[in-house]
């Protein structure tokens, strides 16, 4: 069940990320252009933020999945009586 969920998620997520990976490559800096978080990206630390958000989002989604299953169990129990 868990493996099934994971493989389905990865199978869906990968093509989407590949689509934008071409866009990542375009990120080139120029001095006279508006300031963007280039330094943060070069030092690699933006990935820390991405990971933090992914962890928080995963936690919240996992909580919602568990809540969903608990309600399903409750529904089955009520049906049986």
């Amino acid at each position: 069940m868990k493996n099934n969920l994971l493989s389905r998620a990865v199978a869906l997520l990968l093509p989407l990320l590949l689509l934008v990976s071409t866009a990542f490559a375009q990120a080139t800096a120029a001095a006279d252009q508006p300031e963007m978080a280039d330094a943060l990206r070069q030092s690699g630390k933006i990935y820390v933020v991405v990971l933090v958000i992914v962890i928080i989002l995963s936690g919240l989604l996992l909580y919602l999945v568990r809540l969903d299953r608990k309600v399903s169990r409750l529904e089955r129990e009520i049906e049986g009586r």
Binding site: L16, L17, V20, A23, F24, Q26, A27, I46, Y47, V49, V50, I53, V54, L57
Partner: peptide, 8 residues
């Protein structure tokens, strides 16, 4: 979350 922060 991922592409929104890393994308162009």
């Amino acid at each position: 979350a991922i592409a929104g922060l890393l994308g162009h």
